[in-house]
């Protein structure tokens, strides 16, 4: 049986899309039995996809230089890149911050929060720097397939993965195509 490797990661997202991925339940086992090999994901020890990974799945928008790096890494190492969920596909709810200057935004979040006492803005080399604008994945790298939805349904994710496994071009229609 031909093995198809899959790596996934999340960027500026809420992990909801990955929950939806797990929501495939026994169908995930079915896909694995049909040759899907899940390699690097946020919940595995291995975090970085190997060169030549077949499917890269990214959730979340591109908001910091870290995200940009991960996006480019995935594009470089994966043959097919799938944008999972509204944030990766459209930019989503995170893009609301594009209206507000970053300094003001961080202050509001870490210092001026009603419940915060002597707050400070976290800094350090391990923390990503905000890009000027929060973007959809396709504004940074080329994306092959899109699964919109907030979160996308497990059915939609299953359909796309199944189609790729079967060598078909995935296309979401009707009930599977949702923006919310």
């Amino acid at each position: 049986m031909k093995k198809i490797t899959l790596a996934s990661d999340w960027l500026e997202g809420c992990a909801g899309c990955h929950m939806s991925l797990l929501d495939m339940d026994e169908r995930l086992v079915e896909l694995i039995n049909e040759g899907l090999v899940i390699t690097a994901t946020p919940i595995t020890d291995l975090k970085v996809p190997a060169f030549g990974t077949d499917i890269g799945v990214l959730e979340g928008a591109v908001a910091t230089d870290h995200h940009e790096e991960v996006a480019k890494l995935f594009r470089e190492r994966c043959k097919i890149l799938v944008a999972l969920g509204d944030c990766a596909v459209f930019g989503g709810i995170n893009t609301m911050r594009n209206y507000i200057p970053i300094e003001e935004l961080l202050k509001r979040g870490y210092v001026n929060t009603e419940s915060t006492v002597e707050g400070k803005i976290p800094q350090g080399p391990g923390i990503g720097k905000h890009l000027k604008k929060c973007m959809a994945l396709n504004e940074v790298v080329k994306v092959d397939f899109y699964i919109p939805g907030c979160p996308p349904s497990a059915d939609a994710i299953y359909k796309v993965l199944k189609d790729i496994l079967e060598g078909k071009t995935p296309e979401l229609k009707e009930e599977l195509l949702k923006y919310d």
Partner: peptide, 24 residues
């Protein structure tokens, strides 16, 4: 962005998006 719009599910623009298979 439909996800935080009150009209999602009752929007003619969204309907057209679905109809034309607009996925990004």
């Amino acid at each position: 962005y439909c996800m935080y719009c009150e009209s999602s599910g009752n929007c003619e623009l969204q309907d057209l998006g679905y109809k034309f298979g607009l996925d990004h």
